[in-house]
Amino acid sequence: MLKKVFSLFLVLSLPVFIFGCAGGGKAIQIKGSDTMVNLGQAWAEEFMKEYPAVPVAVTGGGSGTGIAALLSNSTDIAQCSRQIEPKEIALAKKKGINPKEFHVANDGIVVVVNPANKVNKLSTRQLSDIFNGKIKNWKEVGGKNEDIVVLSRERNSGTHVFFLEHVVKLGDKKSPNEFAPCVLMMPSSQAIVEEINGNTAAIGYFGLGYLTNKQKAVAVNGVLPSVKTVTLGQYPISRSLLFYTNDEPNEKVKSFIDFAMSKKGQEIVLKMDFVPIR
């Protein structure tokens, strides 16, 4: 009988131990862009080496997820690979949140095809028409006679929203262009990478950091994507990578942001295949 009571006590107290031990001090929460999640984690690792008393937790879920978390006050920093939308700002104000933006790195969005595809360059107009469904066959842009398999990220991805605004809608927010319904919505950039690797008719997009030699990046408006062309502003599909906080960040969070924007932090940016801000 005593044994039973004791084991029951142990079982019931287990959750207390598990949850109690989760974190020495309160951790800095960083949520958001899947494009930036590896970069965020690299920053966190280096930061925690210098400031071991301040744990940092980085999770992905998409830029939209990060902003949603900021608005529900469940994160300190929202990582975003796109700018916060006016709708989101309005909703934030309603909830008493005041988003503050920090420009921490740059990124190029590469448009990729399978290396066996002979198409090397496309204009932004052609890209817009491919992704909104007007152009359906590779032969229309100088390739083989086969239907284009168009890949995209899901709607919660900042990369998706950025691409929609700047490529599909060609920068005009009022444009009626949308991603065509038949575009395959992949759950992650890695999924797009896998599909491109194995499919000669596929076309997709993701951040510069995901590019490997198994895919071929097409030149957009004649410019191939690289750290140089993005920094110089030559590559047309470039974007800022941002941090958003609620109002001025507290001391702990500020030190992290300062670290990311410092020389050391920007070296990490380069190492992770992104583009430093200077």
Partner: peptide, 21 residues
């Protein structure tokens, strides 16, 4: 053909949908 199910839609988009929109 590719399809989009009710369940996948909720899973993919819930994280991004701002509470109250």
């Amino acid at each position: 053909q590719p399809v989009r199910t009710l369940t996948a839609t909720v899973a993919a988009e819930m994280g991004e949908a701002v509470s109250g929109s």
